[in-house]
Design a protein around this nucleic acid. Structure first.
Length: 645
DNA sequence: GTTAGGG
DNA sequence: CCCTAAC
């Protein structure tokens, strides 16, 4: 293993590096397959570069070249995403769960602020051997938890590398986690270095530079904290940074296994929690023999604004743009949306992130295979079918036939609540969307549920959806995931930056919202045949109850037409089902209820209406007369019924 | 196409 | 939410 020390190039501000990072092959190569004792293979590559002069460079200039660090390059992966690998290792079974802060242009302030949890000293005591980070000229990943200052970090890193790495004394076998390094500027989907080594929209950081408080989060841990931070600093959030968020997959591997015969001993939800990291590790260790690879992923989405429940997902993908002209998409600059004089709405989506991956490979795996695994995982995600959704005010706009104008996207007013979502084609349940009012959405969620809700379908979305009335036309549009499906056989190669950008700068035409990558307009396959789960909000329940009170329980089509006509994603079958569950919910004890709590008042009405209409059904049948159409319960009678129950 | 009910 | 029988 050869570590190449990168020269300190100093800083050149937030400008694009004079010499964009070239493919690794061009910058030197070395084999990574050096084995350490115990026949272990340090199966990873360290692309470590420590930002040296962050402190000096915090203000005006942003992107500095990595000052120093150790770079290990692998000729095998010239076009693969860079990977920052953090080794989480600890003695006596004690693992330090480090959180990688992937952020471009960290300034001192933010950097310092990121430290939470372990200090360097603590890390020392914990026998943390190394923190591998990658950093290129503009992108840096820091293992924030172990760092207090850039200097310390650097020192630490050097020391660790010397001690641990070079002398092979760091039990590298214990754990290896991969994180996607800062992804391409314009699209996280882009995986080919040469293609997206483009200038990054550094202006964003230039502006917000020191004000940044990293809002990284541990996916599994800092739900709350992040939420809070997000609300505060969303303005500074960079989609790019978001993109780097590591996503420890919460999902069952059955959805995400990429490699065959995957073995994952850490699928338990407890895996989501740091304290249980050890568990996984143990599991890993005890199973170190098997050479399986586990890859899990989670959906993700970008948004224009707003805060995500997990604090990491949100990003200002789109914003008003001062920019004009036909060059609607400028991936490398801040995202924008603009309505021009010619009635064209231009979208510029900063980026889409690849759902984070959690990968495990046997220690005997080669770096190359590791990279391939990562690549495969990425490709599996991409090729497996990505679906782009457009969300407005937290609701996904599924009506592809609606014009932007009709949808309200032609005016800047709605842009704040506009967001794009990129998610695996219906492989997952509900979108982890917490869009809309950043100041409230996430806070009302139930972070605690996160660990036990792999799919992340907590009540978060409900909160958002409460903001509309199902009865209100114009507010709801359907979410037509189905129409935008891309099958697994999608050629990976097709998912190029250009394509991902295809969703940018959409014309304000009819098909505008049918944002589908060109290459993915294939029929929906067995993959995407299940709609995303969309829990009913209290508001919807209210509307449903009200409608049923009036129409009864046997006229779901009417109920649909009356109260959910504009909620295309709610079919009358859905309503019927919901009613069914509502009745059930109303009958069980509150303790047994799950999901967003439905006001008891509503449940009472449910029981009331249910009882009433049950009786009516009987009466009606007895009479053999009145058609259901003649039955109508009045508000008063509904009230009566409900009070009787 | 709807409705009803099990999965 | 899905699936389907039944209408």
């Amino acid at each position: 293993m050869v570590f190449k020390k990168r020269a300190n190039h100093g800083f050149n501000g937030f400008q694009v590096p004079v010499i964009p990072r070239a493919p690794r092959s061009a910058r030197g190569r070395s084999s990574l397959n050096k084995k350490v004792k115990d026949n272990q293979v340090c199966a990873f590559e360290i692309l470590a570069s420590i930002a040296g002069k962050l402190l000096e460079e915090s203000e005006s200039s942003a992107s500095s070249n990595a000052s120093e660090g150790f770079i290990v390059q692998d000729r095998q992966n010239e076009v693969k995403p860079s990977i920052a690998e953090g080794i989480h290792h600890g003695s006596s079974g004690e693992s330090i769960f480090t959180t990688e802060v992937a952020s471009q242009n960290l300034d001192q302030k933010s950097f310092v602020h990121t430290e939470t949890g372990f200090s360097l000293e603590k890390a020392e005591k914990a026998n943390v051997k190394i923190e591998a980070v990658e950093s290129d000229n503009k992108d840096r990943i820091y293992s924030n938890r172990l760092v207090e200052t850039p200097e310390k970090f650097r020192e630490s890193c050097n020391r660790k590398i010397k001690k641990g790495f070079r002398s092979n004394k760091c039990g590298l076998k214990d754990r290896l986690e991969l994180y996607m390094s800062p992804a391409p500027v314009d699209s996280k989907i882009n995986v080919k270095y040469p293609l997206h080594r483009k200038p990054f929209p550094t202006d964003t950081f230039t502006k917000h530079g020191n004000g940044i408080k990293l809002d990284f989060r541990d996916d599994d841990e800092n739900f709350l904290r992040c939420t809070k931070v997000c609300t505060k600093s969303k303005a500074f959030r960079s989609p790019r940074r978001m993109a780097h968020r590591r996503i420890k997959n919460l999902l069952s591997s059955k959805y995400w296994n990429v490699a065959p015969k995957l073995k994952d001993c850490e699928l338990s939800r407890s895996d989501l929690e740091i304290p249980l990291y050890r568990k996984r590790k143990v599991c890993n260790g005890s199973d170190s023999s098997h050479h399986n690879t586990t890859v899990k992923k989670r959906k993700f989405f970008d948004r224009v604004s707003g805060v995500t429940s997990d604090g990491g997902f949100s990003s200002e993908s789109v914003s008003n743009s001062p920019e004009k002209g036909t060059d609607g998409h400028k991936p490398s600059s801040s995202s924008k949306l603009q309505v021009t004089e010619d009635s064209r709405v231009k979208f510029s989506i900063k980026s889409f992130r690849i759902p984070e991956l959690y990968i495990e490979v046997p220690e005997s795996a080669t770096v190359g295979s590791l990279k391939r695994t990562v690549m495969e995982a990425v490709m599996a995600i991409i090729g497996g079918g990505m679906h782009v959704g457009v969300l407005l005010q937290g609701e996904e706009i599924g009506d592809d036939n609606r014009t932007l104008e009709q949808t309200g996207l032609s005016c800047n007013e709605n842009l704040d609540t506009l967001s794009f979502m990129l998610e695996p084609s219906s492989l997952l349940a509900s979108p982890v969307s917490c869009v809309g009012d950043p100041s409230s959405q996430c806070e009302t969620s139930e972070p605690i549920r996160l660990p036990e809700t792999p799919a992340l379908d907590s009540g978060i979305t409900d909160t958002v959806r409460d903001s509309y009335l199902p009865i209100n036309p114009g507010n709801l549009v359907e979410n037509n995931h189905d129409s935008t499906y891309s099958p697994t056989d999608t050629i990976v190669d097709k998912v190029t930056p250009d394509q991902s950008r295809a969703i940018v700068a959409l014309p304000a035409s009819t098909e505008a919202l049918a944002v589908v990558p060109v290459s993915q307009k294939i029929k929906r396959s067995e993959f995407a045949n299940r709609r995303t789960r969309r829990p009913f909000s209290v508001t919807e329940v209210e509307a449903l109850v009200h409608a049923v009170e009036e129409l009864g329980t046997g006229r779901w089509r009417d109920v649909k037409l009356r109260a959910f006509e504009n909620a295309d994603h709610r079919t009358y079958v859905d309503l019927k089902d919901k009613w069914k569950t509502l009745v059930h919910t109303a009958k069980i004890s509150p303790q047994q209820r799950r999901g967003e709590p439905v006001p008891q008042e509503l449940l009472d009405r449910v029981l009331g209406a249910h009882a009433y209409w049950s009786q009516h059904q009987i009466k009606q049948h007895g009479k053999h007369q009145c058609g259901t159409g003649t039955l109508k319960i009045t508000e008063a009678s509904a009230e009566r019924v409900s009070t009787q129950v």
